[in-house]
Design a protein around this nucleic acid. Sequence first.
DNA 1: TTCTATGAAATTTTT
DNA 2: TTTCATAGAA
Length: 718
Amino acid sequence: MSLDLVSANPFDQFDLDESETPFLPSTPDYALEDDVFSEIEDHSSLGHAAVFDAEESRAKALTSLIEIQEAAVTHGIDPLLILAGAGTGKTKSLTSRIGFLVGSQRVQPHQVLAVTFTRKASQEMKHRLAAMMGPVAKAMDVGTFHAISARLLRDNADRAGLEPNFSVLDADDQKNVVKDCYASLSYGEHIIPPDSTDSRRQVDYAFILDCIEAKKTGRGFPPNFNRGTFLTPHGIEQMYHRYERSKERMNAVDYNDILIKCRDLLRDDEAVRRYYQTLWRAVLVDEYQDTNDIQQEWLDLITDHGQGCYFTCVGDDDQSVYSFRGANIDNILSFADRYPGARIIRLEQNFRSTRAILDAANHVIAGNESRHGKALFTKGTQGSPVLVHEFSEDRGEVSWIVDDIERKLKGGMRPSQIAIISRASMELNGFQPALTMRRVPFTVTAGRKYNQTAEIKTLSAYLRLMLNRSDNAAFEYAIDAKPRGFGKESLAKLSDTARITELPMIDILADQIRNGAIRKAAVEKVKAFIEFIDEIGDDYRLGVPLDEVIRKVIAECGIKEHVQELREKAENQSDRKKADQFRKQASAIEERVEQYLFHAKEQTNIQDFVDSMSLLETDSSVDDAVWLGTIHAAKGLEFDYVYLVGWEEGIFPVVRPDTDLEEERRLAYVAMTRAKLSLLISYAKSRINRTNDGSERRPNVYINDIIEANLCTFKQFH
DNA sequence: TTCTATGAAATTTTT
DNA sequence: TTTCATAGAA
C-alpha cells in the first residue's frame, strides 16, 4: 500500500484559509521542496509505484519491541510521557513511535516534528528513521530545538523583527561582545576599580555573560555577582542593556535569543502559530527532562497545549543534569498536571547493564525525593560486583587504573570498550600523559573541545560578514585573522564609534579610508580586506558555488600562509619530535579545511551551513580508543568497562553555594548506568593541584551509600 | 601601534 | 593543554 499524500488527512478541517496567511508562499513548503519528498509525490500521483510502503513501515516499527514499549509506541492521541530509564530503549521507542504513526497513516511524513537537544542526537535519530523507513524519513523535521527555531525565525524573519540574514553568535562571539561592552563602561558609576588585594585578578567576562543570561531567562543574578567583574549592580544592568543593543545593531542573535524570539513569535503571531500547529501533527521530544521554561512554552505553543497533535515526550527525570543551563526538572515532574488526560508509561527493563551495576545505581538514585520513581531491572546476569577503590593520592589512582586498562587490553579487550569518566574535566588531566606514555590510544571529550578551531572560525567569520555586514563580531574576528596593521587599539576605537553611530563597523572603516583617517601602515591591507568582502559578496549573489567562494576565502585569509609557515618550521626544526608535531598541526588544519569544504558542497542552504558550522563538533576522534570525558559528555553513551574517578566529597558533589544535591546525585546515577559489564569507582585521599587545608579527603555520599547497602566490593590501595 | 615571543595562570557542566 | 598578559622589537 502506498501512502497517499494528498487526501486522508484527518486534520483537513484544521487547514488554514490561505488568505489569512500572507507568508504561506515562502514558508510552508520546505518539506515539499525536498528532493525525496517531491519524488514520492510524483510517484503517488501516478497512482501505483509504492516508494514508501506504509504497511511495511508499520510492521517494522513494531518488531522486536517488548510489551511495554509497544504500548508506548502504539499509544493514541492523548499526550504521552515515556519515562525511560537509562538503557531501556528510549531512542528506539521514539523512532518506532514515529514509524508507527506514519506507517498507520495517522500522520504524514512531513507532519512529523522530532526535537532533540544535541546535534548528535538528531543525527542519530535521522539515521534510525532512514534505516526504518527509507528515504521518506527525509521529509520529516528532525533537529535540535535551536536548529528548528532558527529555521522558523529565518522563514518568518520579518514577522519576528529580524533581517532574514541574521547571524548566530557562538560562545566566543558572545564573550567578545561582552568584552566590547565592558570596555565602553566608565569607572565610578558602573565599575569599582579593583583594590590592591585583587588587582591581579582579571575581569571574568564569562561570568558577566552568565549574569546577563540569568537576567534574560528570569533566573535573577547569581548571588555574588561582583566577584571577578568589578561591576556595581547598576553596572550589570548597564551591561545587559548594552549587550542586547549590540546584538540588535549587529542583526545577530545568541543561543538564548533563538529560543526566546521563536517563542515570542509563536505566542504573538497567531497566523504563524496556527500554521505550524497545522503543519506538525506529531510532535516528539527527546530528553524532555532537559527542557527549560522557554522550550516548554515553545512546545505548548507548537502543540496547542498538547491537545492538537500526537504529542510524545521521552525522558528520564533521574537523568536531568542541565539545570545550570536552565533546564527545569518540574517540566517532566508535573507533566500529568500540565496535560490533563496525559498517559505516563514507564520503561524500566534495562538492556544494558548487569544486575550488580543496576542494583547499585538504583540504590543511589533512590536517595532523591523529587522524582517519578522508577527501579531498573534486568533479565540478564548478576555480573561481577561493583568495585570501590580507595587510593592515598591521585597519582596512585591514575597509575593503578592505567595499569588495569593495560591488563584489559592485553587480555583482548578493545580500547573503545573502556571509559574513564569524571565529574569535571580537571580530574582527567592526570590520565592523559600516563596513557600516552603507555601508548594507549584515547580520546578526550571535554570542555573546550566543542569550540571551533581557529581556521574554521575564521572561514565562518568571513562568510558571516559576507552575508550580514552588520555582524561586528564576525568583522572583528575576520580582520584579526592575519596581520593587517590594524590591531587592538584601532579596533577598540572603531568599536566605540560603532556604538555611538550604530553603523556596521565595516562601513565605518570604509568611510574612514575614504576620508584618509586611517594610519598609513594599515591603509592598503585594510582596504584590500573590505574590497575582498565586497567581492565575495558579489560572487555569491551572482551564483558562484559556495565552495568556490570558500576556496577564495582560504586563499585570502591567511590559512595557507599559516600552514606554509608550520611546514617551514618543521623543516628547520632539528628536534624530530617537534618537527613531527608541526607537520601534524599543518595537516590537521588542512584536513579540517577540507572537511569544511566538503560540508559546504553538501549544503544547499548557506544560512543553515554557516549556522551549523558554528556548532559543529570537531570530530577528530580516533576509531578505537579509550574514552575520557565528563559525566555530562558521557550521557547517552555506554561502555563495557567504566572507571568513575574522583568520587571524593568536595570534588563530586561539587562544592558551590548553589549546588543542587539532587542533581549531583542524578549525575552519579547517570555515570554509573554508563557501564555494561564492569564498574569501578575510585577516590583519592589527597589530590595535588587542589587547594585545601591538607586534611584527608573522604569518599562521597554515594560511595558510602552503596558500601552500607553492601552493593560493592571495597578495597584500599596505598 | 602592532606584532611576536615568552612565561604565567587557570580550569564545572554546554546548546 | 590552552588561554592570557606583558614586554620588547619593528
